[in-house]
C-alpha cells in the first residue's frame, strides 16, 4: 500500500513536469508530435528509473561511507551521461528497431534536468519526499518509476493536445511556446486537483 501511495503521488500529485518543473525544455521542445513524445517518454522512463537506482546505490554504498556526499552532483551527472551512452551503445548493437525509435532522444536525456533532479531528490534531498533521510531502495524505485510514468504520461497527453491545436488558427504572437505554456497551465491546474487525493 505504501509503495502504491508513493507511486501514485509521484505520477499525479508531485508530477515531475507540472508540479516540480523538471524537464521543461524537452517537454516543450519534443512534444509537438505524439510519436516523438511517446518515444521520449519511454526513453526517459528507462533512463530515469535505472539511473535513480544506480545513484541511490552509489550514494549510500560509496559516497556516504567515504564522506564524499559533496561530490554527488559531479558523480551523478557523470553516471547519467555514461549510462545514457552505454544504453545507446547497447540498443544500437542489439535492436535497430528500438534504436531507430529512441536513439535520437537519448543524448537529450543527459541534459534533462528531471533525471538529475530525481537522482538528487531521492538521495541528498530525500527528507522532503520520503520524510526520512534514509529511504529504502524499494521506496526509491517505486518513486522513480512513478515519476517516469508521470513524465511520459504528461508529455504524451501534451503532445496530443498540441497536435490537435495545430489545426486551428492562433494569433501570431501566441503561436509556439506561448500557447504551449498556456496549455501547460491548464494541465497543471487539472493535475493540482490530485493534490487532495493523497
Amino acid at each position: 500500500m505504501e509503495y502504491i501511495a508513493i507511486a501514485f503521488g509521484a505520477i499525479f500529485v508531485n508530477n515531475v513536469i507540472l508540479n516540480q518543473f523538471y524537464g521543461i525544455c524537452p517537454f516543450l521542445g519534443v512534444s509537438t508530435k505524439k510519436s516523438s513524445a511517446l518515444s521520449m517518454g519511454m526513453a526517459v522512463t528507462f533512463v530515469m528509473t535505472s539511473s535513480t537506482m544506480i545513484a541511490h546505490l552509489l550514494y549510500t554504498r560509496v559516497l556516504i561511507p567515504n564522506n564524499l556526499e559533496y561530490l554527488s552532483t559531479i558523480i551523478f551527472i557523470l553516471v547519467i551521461a555514461s549510462f545514457v551512452q552505454f544504453v545507446e551503445m547497447v540498443i544500437k548493437k542489439f535492436s535497430s528497431a528500438i534504436y531507430n525509435a529512441l536513439g535520437v532522444y537519448l543524448p537529450l536525456i543527459t541534459t534533462n534536468c528531471a533525471v538529475l533532479g530525481v537522482a538528487i531528490d531521492t538521495t541528498r534531498n530525500s527528507q522532503k519526499i520520503f520524510q526520512t533521510t534514509t529511504p529504502t531502495f524499494w521506496q526509491i524505485t517505486f518513486y522513480a518509476v512513478g515519476i517516469s510514468i508521470g513524465y511520459a504520461l504528461v508529455i504524451f497527453l501534451f503532445s496530443a493536445i498540441r497536435e490537435e491545436m495545430d489545426a486551428y488558427p492562433i494569433k501570431r504572437n501566441w503561436q509556439g511556446i506561448p500557447i504551449a505554456l498556456i496549455t501547460a497551465f491548464i494541465m497543471a491546474m487539472i493535475f493540482s486537483g490530485f493534490g487532495g487525493v493523497v
Binding site: F21, R172, P178, I179, A180, I182, A184, F185, A188
Partner: peptide
C-alpha cells in the same frame, strides 16, 4: 504564486514580447 501560475505568467509574457518583436 502557485506552481501552475508559472506557466500562465510566462506564457502571457512571452506572447507580449513576441507582439513587440513582430
Amino acid at each position: 504564486a502557485q506552481a501552475s501560475g508559472a506557466f500562465l505568467v510566462f506564457g502571457i509574457l512571452v506572447a507580449y514580447i513576441n507582439k513587440i518583436k513582430f
